Simulated scan of single mutants.
Amino acid sequence: MSRCARIRPAVFFAVIAALLLSTPGTPVLAGHPIDAAFEACRQKAMDTASIGQCTTTARQQWDKELNAAYAALMQALEPGAREALKASERAWIGFRDAEIKFLRERFSTQDGTIWPLVEEAQVVDLTRKRAIQLRCYGKMMDMEGPPDAECP
């Protein structure tokens, strides 16, 4: 019997929820629409495939958020800063891709269906952090509007 087969379903889903929602160093974005939708989806999910779909959807939505923040920031920057941001984003994409490769290598040797979910949750976290970082850079520049609790 594999290690995963010995885990009770309730314990399994509790572990999944903890891994997906409490990545160390990640601010809990209570109230962010993407995270709220992810949580609602995850609460309804009854199996790992459903949780995987919820996580994939959240990653796609955070990726759209990241792209929108990048585009808005690029429009607000002077030409020299635009080039620097472009270089920074390319370097971040390289880091992200290397991190995903590491995660795939590491988790591909593990037994159980939880590990692809853990990997995808880490990718969501990377994407979320970068989207927030870019949006915060834009907010620092405009110095208008209400304070954003997600920004330093």
Results as ranks from 00 to 15, higher is better:
Leu134Cys: 12
Pro147Arg: 01
Gly112His: 04
Tyr137Pro: 03
Arg130Thr: 13
Asp111Gln: 13
Asp125Ser: 07
Ile132Thr: 15
Arg135Ser: 13
Ser108Gly: 06
Asp142Ile: 07
Met143Ala: 11
Gln133Thr: 15
Thr109Tyr: 04
Arg130Ser: 13
Ala121Lys: 03
Thr109Gly: 11
Arg130Ile: 11
Cys136Lys: 13
Val118Gln: 04
Gly112Thr: 07
Leu117Arg: 09
Met141Ala: 09
Gln133Arg: 14
Ala121Gly: 15
Arg128Thr: 06
Tyr137Ser: 14
Gln110Glu: 14
Lys129Ala: 14
Ile114Trp: 02
Tyr137Asp: 12
Thr109Ala: 12
Gly145Val: 04
Ile132Val: 15
Trp115Asn: 10
Leu117His: 08
Ala121Phe: 00
Val123Pro: 01
Pro147Thr: 02
Gln133His: 15
Glu144Gln: 11
Thr127Ile: 04
Arg128Val: 02
Gly145Gln: 03
Cys136Trp: 13
Met140Gly: 11
Arg130Gln: 15
Thr127Asp: 05
Ile132Cys: 10
Ile114Pro: 00
Gln122Val: 02
Arg128Tyr: 08
Asp111Lys: 11
Gly145Pro: 03
Gln122Asn: 07
Gln122Leu: 09
Lys139Val: 00
Asp111Asn: 12
Arg130Trp: 11
Glu144Tyr: 00
Arg128His: 06
Ile114Ala: 06
Thr127Met: 10
Asp125Gln: 04
Arg130Asn: 15
Met140His: 12
Thr109Phe: 09
Arg106Glu: 06
Gly145Phe: 03
Ala121Asn: 06
Tyr137Leu: 15
Ser108Glu: 07
Ala121Ile: 05
Leu134Gln: 12
Arg128Ala: 01
Phe107Ala: 02
Gly138Trp: 09
Val124Glu: 13
Gln110Gly: 10
Leu126Ala: 08
Val124Phe: 12
Val124Gly: 07
Tyr137Phe: 13
Asp142Arg: 15
Ser108Met: 01
Gln133Phe: 15
Val124Gln: 12
Met141His: 03
Glu144Asp: 09
Met140Asn: 13
Pro116Gly: 01
Met140Gln: 14
Thr113Arg: 08
Leu134Met: 14
